[in-house]
Simulated assay, not measured.
Amino acid sequence: MNHKTMTILILEDEIPAYQKLVSHLVTFFGEPVLHDWSRSVSEGEKFLVENTYDFILSDIQLLDGISFDLFNRIKVESPIIFCSAHDDYLFQAFNTNGIAYILKPYSREDFKKALEKYQSLFKQGTYNSLDNTTINALKSAIQQGQDEYKKRFVIKRSKGIQLLNVVDISLLAASGDFCVATDSFGKTHPILEKIGVLTKQMNPKKFFRINRSQIIHIEYIETIENHFKNRLLIQLKGVKEKVMTSSSTTSDFRKWIEQ
């Protein structure tokens, strides 16, 4: 297919992620490609009612819901490449159903492989459009993944074992090869996991990694102040020192707290 006659729909609520997709498209095809862009289910629905597309690049979480709901409502024959931060459960579900899926943060090579998968399926005539049964299986996989987020930690102390409920954690901070959890009462607890492992275990609706070494709980944010170099100072309940977003996470953090 001549890409100069192609039209693509991009469903992505995050502006930097959208810009990254466009950049990868330009790199892959060697020049700009005609496309429409929507950040919401409602706007995406209008695009799909009024247009047909050669393929769709879609995040799962949009500003007003999940893209699966959009594909439930409108029968889409176009191939869809999903780009999302949802991991294990969803990744397995996509692979089982033969759908191209790029896990955020993805590289240019990941993107290239996904587009090549789309092209080969298209040329062979073996692309199966997304049906409601498949969509519901994927929605179920998301729910299963959400059910698997960490609910409590077992803390070993000299007097025995203590349980720390995740809902009570205000801050998780890296400390060498392990982390320290501070609860809303200001008490600290050692957790024998690295910050990268904990990031994947915590529910992203409640917890946000504001910099390389700290994860905060949205329910214990008391104040947020602007700081220099596009950073934010955050006061958390039970934590004496204010914590700070990195300049690279501030934009995503602002969107996260408005969800």
Rank of each mutant, 00 (worst) to 15 (best):
D54A: 11
L62N: 01
K229R: 10
R254N: 07
F91T: 14
G98L: 10
P79A: 09
G145N: 02
V243R: 12
M202Q: 08
M6P: 06
F55Q: 11
Q162M: 10
T27V: 12
D183H: 05
T223L: 05
G30A: 13
L232F: 06
R157T: 13
N226W: 11
H189E: 04
F207Y: 08
I224V: 01
F47I: 04
I195Q: 09
T199Y: 10
Y89R: 00
I66C: 06
S140G: 02
G30T: 13
A174S: 09
L90H: 00
G160P: 07
D64I: 05
S140V: 01
Q119Y: 14
K75A: 15
T27Q: 11
D177V: 11
L48V: 02
R108G: 11
I60C: 00
L25R: 02
D13T: 01
G196F: 13
L171P: 06
I215Q: 08
K237S: 06
S248F: 09
S213M: 04
N165R: 13
V49Q: 03
G44H: 04
K194T: 13
K206N: 11
S78P: 05
I191T: 09
I210T: 10
D110N: 05
K104E: 04
S84W: 03
A114K: 09
V239N: 01
N226A: 11
S129Y: 12
T250D: 00
A17T: 06
Q144H: 05
T126K: 07
L70H: 01
L130Q: 10
Y106N: 02
L62Q: 02
G238P: 07
I66H: 00
L11H: 03
N72I: 11
F91A: 14
E14Q: 10
V180E: 07
F122L: 15
T52S: 14
K205F: 11
D69W: 02
Q143R: 10
H35F: 08
I221N: 02
A141K: 00
K4F: 10
E219N: 12
K187F: 06
G145I: 00
K240H: 09
H24P: 06
R73S: 10
T250Y: 02
M202Y: 08
Q146C: 06
F55T: 12
S170A: 14
L21G: 04
M202S: 07
N136F: 06
V167L: 12
W256I: 00
Q92V: 15
K123Q: 13
R231N: 05
C83D: 09
K113H: 12
D147M: 06
L11S: 05
N132K: 11
H24Y: 15
Q19T: 06
A173L: 15
V22G: 00
N2V: 09
W256C: 03
Y118S: 12
M244L: 12
D36A: 11
G125W: 00
S40N: 01
D168T: 15
E77R: 14
T7S: 13
